[in-house]
Design a protein around this nucleic acid. Structure first.
Lengths: 348, 348
DNA sequence: TTTTAGCACTCAACTAAATAGAGTGCTAAT
DNA sequence: ATTAGCACTCTATTTAGTTGAGTGCTAAAA
């Protein structure tokens, strides 16, 4: 779809975008002629700019202003022009490994990395907690805590631990609990969690009730708990660096700023924003490529982080379309790699 | 310290503050004379306003403007004048109980209530997760997951569950693990968690090593995990409704807005902001009563929520000093009551 | 003595006009 | 095909002028 531009147009477009990313203002032909050594005069650049505008790569806020890149222009920049040389990753990697050491648990790690990512990119960042699919239970333990309280602990084969306090009316002695526990281990571990549905529980419950006296309540709770292990709605999103948004002049418009912050405020819209295909390593959504119209003056860079080759979570950076793509993309790449490693490690 | 004002000054101050809370603009004597039926002319009000300014309850942005309340004025309003009649709490209570039913776990409940509180108050809100002090371990379980992985589950006497995957190099058979487990149950349950320090662990470890062969690693991890149960730094803070901040004209100044959002962005400053005495039911910090100077154009309403009579977490609402104190205070009161009940319930 | 009408004065906020300057598009020369 | 030159455009900034809400003070009335 995107036709390649000839070399001179490319250089000029490249120069305009780089200049605009720095200054956040419309860029004029004279600036390009002076600052970038393209070997042609401002008049020539002027003609080329008119062409680039006609082709849709540039826009003119008004007749007597310079040009700014269009979404199409940025897209061309990201896909073709952009210098993909990474940032200096040493410091980033060092800082990340420090966080990982200091924090405990998935919550701590993910929230720490979210903050760190925003401090490195200077944009708002979002990271979802890892989500596990097609998993099996590897361990089930029913522990008596008090006379009418049981603790149910379930461990998935990728190391996720779920625990739930259960209040029981029925008085279950330790022997009975052990019996139920063994029964559960046989029936629900090592099976794909998706198959452990209401029907299956009804079945095995009948089976158990034939053998020992038991109120229904317990199995309902276990069933519900397993559903929740499997429920993507419960995935937390961490968000960091919202105050960096204000550094960008495109958000000086308070009304617009409010719309954007409002999206970040609500889990549902935030999840929609950070949606991306699982099989892509990194996805850059520029301006109107975003579904939500409030986001169409923004760009989002989203990467998956993985366990093995399965995507388990998303890393996102949100900024104006005039974003420093090369820096953000390489940072996001590094962070998603490291997070993949960390989560895989925790999961071992 | 605060001397009571005579009745007329009180009414005038009351009227000015109410008017200012609505309009967000300086209030003039004529407005008060017309809108509030105080039975005196604007000239009299003018004289009284000059007095109130001299006494420090009002300020004048510039000579030819009306008056705005000072922090001292708001303080007088909150302590003495304010009509404390609550909001209509039915809808609030209903919504809260719905959240509680729909959400699982402390994370879900606290984050849901944070969002709800911001939607009811229309200000930014913060709620800390419950923090448990002076607790005992009521249950310890060491579960073999795979050959070189143990799951350590500890339950505190108030129902908090901690779990930790432990990678072990040493090969421990089930019997040994059961032995260690029993040993631990004897040594660390039913003891104040504060006493389970490094020294104590070194001691009991020596004792155990005399009986069975064991690498040090395991006890270090348990020790660390217990420290973390006890570590207030790990308490999460949930924050909601940041976009409501932009509704307030006092935050139209982008520079100031950035400072405030920056505080909300960082856990450390956020925790500092929401610090309040445990023994007070509700604390209102007006303008300069806030320690952080970036917050001195804001007010914060903070309540404790409790288990029994022990404060375990904070609920905070952040707005401009021109905050709708009566509405916020009564909402916060209700929410903290309900959250206390919910957390106590979860904890039973 | 207290209250109030009346009036001159103040000052931010708004409006309109003037000006500057960055940038374009076109033309004609190279 | 490129470029110097120039008229033209349009925003942004500055400046001056105007408005109006509100005050403080004074003198008369209650």
């Amino acid at each position: 779809m995107v036709k390649n531009l000839d070399e001179r147009k490319s250089s000029i477009l490249h120069a305009i975008i780089q200049e605009h990313i720095i200054t956040a203002s419309p860029v004029g032909s004279r600036t390009i002629a002076k600052k970038y050594d393209l070997g042609v005069s401002s008049a020539t650049i002027r003609n080329e700019m008119a062409d680039l505008e006609e082709l849709g790569y540039l826009e003119q806020p008004h007749t007597s202003a310079g040009r700014i890149p269009s979404d199409k222009g940025y897209r061309y920049y990201v896909d073709i022009l952009m210098n993909n040389k990474g940032i200096n990753s040493d410091k980033l990697i060092k800082t990340l490994s420090e966080i990982t050491k200091a924090k405990k648990g998935i919550h701590g790690i993910v929230s720490g990395i979210t903050t760190m990512l925003s401090e490195f990119t200077k944009y708002a960042t979002m990271i979802t907690e890892p989500e596990f699919k097609n998993i099996k239970l590897s361990e089930v333990q029913l522990i008596k805590v008090t006379n009418n309280k049981l603790l149910l602990v379930m461990v998935t084969d990728n190391g996720f631990v779920s625990d739930k306090m259960i209040n029981i009316q029925q008085d279950l002695d330790k022997r009975k609990i052990r019996y139920i526990n063994n029964f559960l281990v046989n029936k629900i571990t090592d099976k794909n969690i998706n198959n452990l549905d209401k029907n299956y529980f009804d079945e095995i419950e009948d089976e158990l009730i034939k053998k020992i006296n038991l109120s229904q309540q317990l199995f309902n709770i276990i069933n519900k708990e397993i559903k929740e292990i499997n429920d993507p709605r419960d995935i937390n999103i961490y968000i960091g660096g919202t105050s960096y948004i204000l550094d960008q002049p495109e958000f000086n418009d308070i009304e617009y700023l409010k719309k954007v912050l409002n999206i970040l405020d609500h889990e549902d819209t935030l999840k929609k924003l950070i949606t991306a295909e699982n099989n892509k390593e990194i996805e850059v959504r520029i301006g109107h490529e975003n579904e939500m119209k409030e986001m169409q003056r923004c760009s989002v860079v989203i990467a998956n982080y993985t366990i093995g080759d399965k995507a388990v979570g998303k890393i996102g950076v949100l900024g104006p379309t005039r974003m420093e793509y090369p820096r953000v993309i390489s940072t996001v790449n590094i962070v998603s790699d490291i997070l993949s490693k960390i989560i895989s490690e925790v999961n071992k």
